[in-house]
């Protein structure tokens, strides 16, 4: 282990100020990913700013029906929050499908958004990885990539984002609230994670020193149904091969609102805009759903060993849309 300095901040401002002078600083909350990566030597921060005491651990229901989730609300708490279970079931389901009970008790909302890929090469400092060591190469393209991306990747990185929660947030049009040295800003979850392009080392659009303070969920349409489904190699405690977060509202047999996001397919939670375009205003039939999902997955470029993900994503999404439409009748 490399020695590091540690400070516990009392307010968001204090945390941001503490971080400001240290390019090698990292915020520490639940530590379920960062500490693992430090043990592996993947992350070697010189300075940790503990943000677990910022009192950002509150879920607030606003008068307009929206929900503000504090950055350090634990995953298990958020999953069990009555407003989440009631209005955003897809989010509760996504959270509960992730990690294990012990990890969910420690992991925070912001930390979940910032967790890093589980690509085996990223996690092994003895091997090249452009995300970990820019310019060193991406062995996954020719190597072990069965669980890696089919969409949105680049010649420099084929890693996937591992979060379940973020997939649900993407489908719910949630936004990330950031507090930084240059003030506050809000970024939609769908734009929060970057595609790798030629700089895969940057997972998100977060700027140096910026701190996630909350995630904002817009009001849920009372008539919309939502569901999360995750396909994986064992029944619990496994990352998604493919997952789907689906929100659907059908009126008079026609799709009135649809939001579809995929996990396990891409470097970020993959909001299926092309599919939604086909869905909107179309009859809520299996034919429509199939055409919509196919429109989205036409862009997929599977690698040697992960072509099954395209089939799996197609099956899952069509099945989920069909099931939600049936429930609406």
């Amino acid at each position: 282990m490399k020695p590091f300095a540690y400070v516990k901040a009392a307010t968001p401002d204090e945390a941001v100020r503490a971080c400001a002078g240290h390019p090698g600083a990292r915020y520490l909350a639940g530590g379920t990913n960062l500490v693992d990566l430090m043990k592996l030597g993947v992350e070697t921060p010189e300075f940790l700013v503990d943000v677990s005491g910022l009192q950002l651990d509150v879920v607030e229901e606003l008068p307009d029906g929206s929900l503000t989730v504090g950055a350090t609300v634990r995953n298990s708490e958020l999953a069990a929050h009555p407003a989440v279970i009631d209005r955003y079931p897809v989010l509760s389901q996504a959270l509960l499908s992730g990690a294990s009970g012990q990890l969910r008790n420690a992991a925070t909302t912001a930390g979940n958004l910032l967790q890093r890929t589980r690509c085996p090469y990223f996690q092994d400092p003895g091997k090249p990885c452009n995300k970990r060591l820019p310019g060193s190469g991406c062995p996954a393209i020719d190597g072990a990539h069965r669980e890696l991306a089919v969409l949105g990747y680049s010649a420099h990185c084929v890693a996937t984002n591992p979060s379940d929660m973020a997939v649900a947030l993407a489908a719910l049009d949630a936004a990330v609230q950031l507090h930084g040295p240059e003030g506050d800003r809000t970024v939609p979850v769908t734009e929060f994670h970057r595609l790798p392009g030629d700089s895969p080392e940057r997972d998100t659009v977060i700027r140096p020193g910026e701190l996630i303070t909350a995630v904002r969920l817009p009001p849920a349409s009372p008539a919309a149904l939502s569901h999360y489904r995750k396909a994986r190699e064992r029944a619990s405690y496994a990352f998604a091969l493919v997952s789907t977060a689906t929100v659907l509202e059908v009126r008079n047999g026609v799709v009135h609102h649809a939001a579809l996001a995929f996990g396990g397919l891409a470097p970020r939670p993959w909001r299926a805009h092309a599919a939604e375009e086909v869905l909107l205003g179309a009859p809520a039939t299996r034919e429509t759903f199939t055409a919509a999902v196919d429109a989205e997955l036409a862009a997929a470029r599977p690698l040697r060993d992960n072509g099954f993900k395209v089939t799996l994503a197609r099956n899952l999404a069509v099945d989920e849309l069909t099931a939600l439409a049936a429930r609406e009748r």
Binding site: R118, P120, D124, K127, P139, D142, G143, A144, E233, R234, A235, S236, Y237, A238, F239
Partner: peptide, 19 residues
């Protein structure tokens, strides 16, 4: 490529869990 086993921890080497 490297001559080692890809699944080298209990998150990736999937022994059955209770579920």
């Amino acid at each position: 490529l490297f001559g080692d086993f890809t699944e080298s921890d209990l998150a990736s080497y999937h022994v059955p869990v209770h579920a």
